[in-house]
Nucleic acid binder design. Structure first.
Lengths: 239, 239
DNA sequence: AGCCTAACGGCACTCAGTGCCGCTAGCAAG
DNA sequence: CTTGCTAGCGGCACTGAGTGCCGTTAGGCT
């Protein structure tokens, strides 16, 4: 958003991969500025391309659709998440790992606050962009679910697929909740801290017994006498 | 899908509300058949309108967009869900009520299996339709979240908004998981039963203390000595 | 210096979606 | 039966997204 949006590259840029990324960013940056200034529908692809100094046809060689330009860095984030999963050892709680991975989304939003705020304003206003964002979120929710399912299956969980889908949805929802709250406040405050609190709620809800340091979730009512509680808990902890 | 898709209403139908609904259904039915037969992109709005015996312009008076025609009954389902919420007494567990409400989606899918299977094949194949479906799901996920938030706030929950969003996402995910599994199997088997199992997982994870018969969820590890467990549990049950 | 690949721009086309308007079916009143 | 009004409908024309095609040329490689 700081680089000049007018007549940037008169020459051929996309020959090298670095140049391609540069033009991608220039197009995305120009698009966000134009959307914020004139509105999404009022901005044509021609406008965006002209602002970046390229032809309309070139825009569609960098983005499949007009609305894709708003979520340009999404693919990179997903790639980072996959790396996070690959790097995570088998010792950690799967849900915890997934929370850490989805935290990368928060990082990328925080890394470019100006764009994030403009995009947020747009997704709140334009229905089609809201839908697009939901679809985008769904994509990394799927990535989370795939990872979790694999881990649950390792643990011999019968309902691995279901648990994974539900946990992934919960994590994504917690992440989005924190993110929206933070954006509504203009990007002030410590996201990572509030995110950790939100994730704690999810982790508690979906904690799974792992390895030798077993964990047990006991659901009790006042009807249960205390001595029976002790018996039950002891049973589970030893069995 | 049983009514003839050719030259149906030569006269003016939409004068009465009943007639409007009839034409809506005729358009939706014709669209699904054409999509299934020739593919989504290959089918133009002109084709759909012609099959229903109306003009292209009329189609857009009944549906805002081409892809809306695939999710024609969505608004009705949401309305039914709201009724379910209004009818539910304050005694029941909010998550349980939400699960029951989202079960209406399953009912509507089961009510028209033929259309559901065709739509499922389309949403699996065509990316834009998958996104549209995700956006549709997100809409009633929001309805669930609003209900849950209100209930949690009644209970004086500090984190009502977060808990509601997370629980709603979990419920929607469980519902979708069951639904997809069922559709993949061609619509055979008892959805409601498997859904009940899936919902049980979510309900257990998000159970909240309600009224005089309090419930406590204790998360313990083997590191905790049993006498301390007893003390802690007793504390919570009495406090 | 010269080739050769591929990025680019431009043109033309399809189709989704929208505003506008003229038509008429159907209803209501005389 | 006739007249007038309303609103659903069809058609036309227009914008803009997205795509296939092709000529051009920049820029890397030998």
């Amino acid at each position: 958003m700081t680089e000049s949006p007018r007549r940037a590259p008169a020459t051929r840029v996309g020959a090298t991969p670095a140049g391609r990324r540069q033009l991608r960013r220039a197009l995305a940056s120009a698009a966000v500025d134009l959307f914020a200034a004139n509105g999404y529908e009022a901005t044509t692809v021609d406008d965006i391309a002209a602002a970046a100094g390229v032809g309309r046809r070139t825009f569609f060689r960098y983005f499949d659709a007009k609305d894709d330009v708003l979520f340009a860095n999404h693919d990179e984030i997903v790639a980072e998440m996959e790396e996070e999963f690959a790097a995570a050892g088998p010792g950690r709680d799967p849900v915890e790992v997934a929370c850490a991975a989805v935290g990368l989304v928060l990082d990328s939003y925080a890394a470019d606050l100006d764009v994030s705020l403009k995009r947020f304003a747009l997704t709140r206003t334009v229905p089609s962009l809201r839908d697009k964002e939901v679809a985008t979120v769904d994509r990394y929710q799927r990535v989370l679910a795939r990872y979790l399912q694999a881990r649950y299956e390792e643990q011999g969980d019968e309902t691995a697929s279901l648990r994974a889908a539900v946990a992934a949805a919960a994590i994504a929802a917690a992440n989005n909740h924190v993110l929206r709250r933070w954006l509504r406040a203009g990007g002030t405050g410590d996201i990572k801290a509030t995110a950790a609190e939100a994730f704690a709620l999810v982790i508690d809800a979906f904690r799974t017994p792992a390895g030798d340091e077993a964990t047990v979730v006991a659901v009790l009512t006042t009807a249960t006498p205390l001595h029976e509680v002790v018996a039950r808990v002891g049973e589970v902890l030893r069995g």
